[in-house]
Amino acid sequence: MDFIAILSIFVLACFVGYYVVWSVTPALHTPLMAVTNAISSVIIVGALIASAAAGSIGGKWLGLLAVVLASINIFGGFAVTQRMLAMYKKKERPAAK
């Protein structure tokens, strides 16, 4: 892909992000931060490439360390988001009392 194609994806994604995030309800702003945190760890893609590549021992170990850090974030981020979202409940039926 040439630079301008990538730039196009980036600019369009910024607009998508803008509209999608404004539609997030304020009550879910904390889960929003937790989940954006988890997905920004997609940087693990770079870490995996570095750890799989031959040619630089230093690069490989930096990559592996980055894989550990990004994995903490991915698993921790999605799990904690899940835990939070499961707590949001509607009013129970008034029949209770």
Partner: peptide
């Protein structure tokens, strides 16, 4: 890395 998943995510998280 010319990786669209990372670019889209970065843009989403950045604007968020």
């Amino acid at each position: 890395l010319h990786n669209s998943a990372m670019i889209i995510t970065g843009a989403l998280v950045g604007s968020s």
